[in-house]
Design a protein around this nucleic acid. Structure first.
Lengths: 196, 196
DNA sequence: CTACATTAATGACCGTGGTCAATTTTGGAG
DNA sequence: CTCCAAAATTGACCACGGTCATTAATGTAG
């Protein structure tokens, strides 16, 4: 469990947690996120079921810890890219991230559920990724050929909102990568480059 | 179960379903949506558990059928209101709807999960509500003092996206009604009244 | 009215996430 | 090294959503 400050964490704790994470990742790699079963994970890790829940409050917390690092690695990639000069380029930069988030309906649902902070001041790792996305895209929006009448933070917020909207709306119809990019482009041009 | 076309539906079917819905609503009224248990519902309705699942594919489908009518009644109200002349007025018009959607974390999650269509061409009652919201707000946005460079449909889409975003971000911090209205107002002014 | 195919209802059963009192392990104080 | 309080682990147990072969009710053709 999220070790409170000042408690003595034994070294085996870290080892057990590592085993659980490793087992989880191997399950996900072969069967996907949705197929993950706690019982399978603990049996692979060679520990009892109760142990799982003393390391993770519930299955969702494990899911967060599996998904957030993936999101962060996509953000690393994105961060290393040159500042995009157009909406199309922004969409292209975000594409790998989008592809991952929509790789499974279940993954999208988990991310959605945790994209806002859960309780006051308890911001989870996935919510942190969204925060980080704002930090990454904000400068893009400040520097590129986009509207200047509102703050980059607000622009980034909107980008996030339209990103979610696009993915939510396109989970039905033939789950088309192309359609999603096109729709997101339309949204972002309207948001970032209004011509009143 | 969603009766396939052309099967003969017996009259007792309707009676049983009505009993189930009524029992569900009574549970929700006293304990809230999250507390609803299928076992309690069937025992209140005086039917077996299996019966529940021959009427509703799963618990989520029941939830949709409980929540969608509420959403629609709020939309009825909203539809009867005069066309808003400002962002503030829009936000005020939407307030009761927002209050309901955020009445419980569980309700918000159910709505989010079903706000996009689930499978191709299988659009659920909650997704229909969002579609309807677009039909209601589109004309507002076309007639009011808002940007004209993009279609009312697109404007309405954005309104929906910012609505979700606002609710998602404000579920943590002290779940403040005032804060939500203020944030939504900021988003919508930026979206509907850009000043480049 | 009867026979019978169709539709509805039943409840024992299962899968799986999550709990908790009891037990074992750990590592530091003396 | 010994002892022991704190930390970690265990697994039987529970809650609850969901399944399905079996049984009962329905209404229609003859």
């Amino acid at each position: 469990m999220q070790s409170r400050p000042m408690s003595k964490v034994q070294s085996r704790t870290l080892k057990t947690r590592a085993k659980l994470i490793e087992a989880s990742e191997s399950v996900v790699k072969t069967d996907g996120y949705e197929a993950l079963r706690v019982e399978q994970v603990v049996s692979l890790a060679g520990v009892a079921k109760g142990t799982f829940f003393s390391h993770f409050k519930d299955k969702d917390v494990l899911m967060e810890q599996l998904i957030a690092p993936r999101l962060n690695s996509y953000l690393d990639e994105i961060e290393s890219l040159p500042t995009p000069e157009s909406v199309e380029e922004i969409v292209r930069h975000l594409q790998p991230l989008i592809a991952f988030i929509t790789c499974e309906r279940y993954v999208f649902d988990v991310i959605l559920r945790h994209s806002g902070a859960a309780a006051k001041e308890e911001i989870g790792p996935i919510a942190e990724c969204f925060f980080r996305m704002g930090m990454v895209t904000g400068p893009w929006l400040a520097m590129g050929p986009f509207r200047k009448d509102i703050s980059p933070e607000l622009l980034a917020d909107g980008l996030g909102a339209f990103l979610i909207q696009t993915m939510a709306l396109n989970f039905c119809a033939l789950h088309n990568e192309r359609a999603m990019q096109d729709q997101l482009t339309i949204y972002l041009k309207a948001w970032l480059q209004p011509t009143v």
